[in-house]
Amino acid sequence: MSEYRAPLEGMRELYPFLYSGAADLESVMADVRRSTAEKAEEIVALRRRVLALDGPRLEVCAARMAEAFRAGGRLFTFGNGGSSTDAQDVAALFLNPGGDARPLPALALTTDVAVLTALSNDVGFDVVFARQLAAFGRAGDIALGLSTSGDSANLLRAFEEAMRRGMLTVGLAGHTGGRMAELDGLDHLFTVPSSSVHRVQEAQTTVYHALWELTQHAL
């Protein structure tokens, strides 16, 4: 094995004769470099669009979140897959922001494997967030859910539960907003207008960072 390893990891300049497919490799690598540059441009342009579409609404949402925190509200976050990691990032950022920023009460509903597996096994995956909100959520708390499609059934159930309980509801979606855009009574919905799941997630990261920064600013 070891004789293959070195040339495969960037040492082909040292061993060009080992590469009978060297021409192919060069053109593939040129494509790969071009693709990186294109994607960097894409996300910069997409962030500009999000700002143009949602800038003032982000400020309004952050003001309401700050109001909720001031009144003793807590933040609950949720999402699936990559968005579950964003939900955890949001909760960690609010609770433990570091520096001079003010720590705020926040919990991701995606981390407790005992609760997630119990609810999925006994009731179904659609209720994993809604049932936790039923247990924890109070009027004046904040429910923030992230989805790239806007169609996740367990997010829709969670928002319905949050609305029933009088929580402030904040949704981050992508593309056209999917079923989240059709939810009656969602307080704030930010939809990243892109058909690329990856670019949507990247812009959503900016959206929740902006919400955090503006909330801190408003407090």
Binding site: A40, E59, A210
Partner: peptide
């Protein structure tokens, strides 16, 4: 506006 400031800080590193 504050939101524009937040987004503006992303431009150069995003492009880089």
């Amino acid at each position: 506006p504050p939101t524009e400031r937040v987004f503006a800080r992303r431009e150069a590193p995003g492009r880089a």
